[in-house]
């Protein structure tokens, strides 16, 4: 990591660019990641937003951005970014915009848009080689509407639409792999609880051209049912238990940036969240717990072989 200006924690930004006063929940893991990311991207950005929790970042007449923002719709934020980027390029080419006035185009969506409705628009933007940075805050469900399950919901989690004894029967979609299969300039997973890893990856993304996609786990006290003070702790446990592999795709290769040397049992992560309480009460669902653990183990075992 000699190429990074983020060698140690002390190199992380100590003053922050994203404004306070937004309507997002106290302890929002998505906002935690966003403000860390915005510190590095800076204000020379236009954030094109899809419908989700972060729709409420800017509510007339209040905006937390130092730069610009455009709200689009749930399915088409990457297309909005395409229009903005194309127009900026036209203005640059015609001399109606100076290079100093140019902006980075950033898409901001939740997992509902990223894993589902917006996937076609995202795929199209990558295939066209759009020069943009895509940021998904993944809180593993339709959080803004009360945490119904989405394509990002993990197996066994209770959601507003999977309240049965075994929780959500499906499996979390591998969006990282779907994105990487497009062979874009850069893909990475991050979490706000690992700010140094995050900073290096955003720096990487910022310094590249073409489609760059960032998938951030966003621990959600409201939707996952934990105390807001535990947001960072749960994010870190997601990494330490191996639930959330920190990795990047660059130059055709997938590299894990933080391999947990001794993975903590996944229970340590699950039992802190109300959405998994039915795995432990009224009695332990040993089979389901083992299945979840086995899937994580298999992921990391495959990596080594």
């Amino acid at each position: 990591m000699s190429e990074t200006r983020f060698q140690t924690m002390k190199d992380l930004p100590s003053c922050h660019l994203l404004g306070t006063g937004t309507a997002l929940c106290a302890g929002c893991g998505g906002l935690e990641a966003l403000h860390e990311i915005y510190d590095i991207l800076g204000e020379k950005t236009v954030v094109v937003n899809a419908a989700g929790c972060m729709t409420l970042l800017a509510v007339y007449p209040f905006t937390p951005f130092r730069g610009s923002w455009l709200y689009t719709a749930m399915a088409s934020a990457p297309a909005g970014a395409q229009g903005v980027r194309d127009a900026l390029d036209i203005l640059l080419a015609k001399g109606r915009l100076t290079a100093e006035e140019d902006l980075q185009t950033v898409v901001l969506t939740g997992d509902g848009a990223a894993y589902g409705m917006g996937l076609s628009a995202t795929s199209g933007a990558i295939e066209r080689g759009l020069d943009f940075l895509y940021l998904c805050y993944d809180n593993e469900g339709y959080g803004n509407t009360g945490q119904q399950y989405s394509g990002a919901t993990p197996h066994g989690a209770r959601t507003a639409t999977s309240k049965g004894p075994c929780g959500y029967p499906g499996y979390k979609k591998d969006l990282f792999a779907i994105w990487a299969a497009h062979r874009p300039a850069y893909v990475a997973t991050v979490v706000g609880a690992e700010p140094l890893d995050l900073a290096r990856k955003i720096e990487q993304a910022k310094n590249r051209q073409g489609p760059r996609l960032i998938l951030s786990l966003a621990p959600c006290p409201t939707g996952w049912d934990f105390d807001p003070s535990e947001t960072a702790q749960i994010g870190r446990l997601a990494v330490q238990t191996g639930v959330w592999p920190l990795k990047e795709y660059r130059d055709g290769q997938v590299v894990h940036t933080k391999v947990p040397q001794k993975r903590l049992p996944v229970e340590d992560y699950l039992k802190r969240q109300g959405r998994f309480a039915h795995l432990f009460q009224p009695q332990r669902n040993e089979a389901l717990l083992q299945e979840i653990q086995a899937r994580i183990d298999a992921y990391w075992d495959n990596l080594q072989s």
Partner: peptide, 30 residues
């Protein structure tokens, strides 16, 4: 504290000391 504060409501002064912006701190206790 300043890095993890989701709302960016903790600023760090020149001497490296954090200062909480109580007008905006939502009290999440992260």
């Amino acid at each position: 504290c300043s890095t993890f504060c989701p709302d960016g409501a903790i600023q760090v002064d020149e001497s490296g000391r954090p200062r909480i912006d109580y007008a905006h701190c939502k009290g999440c206790m992260v």
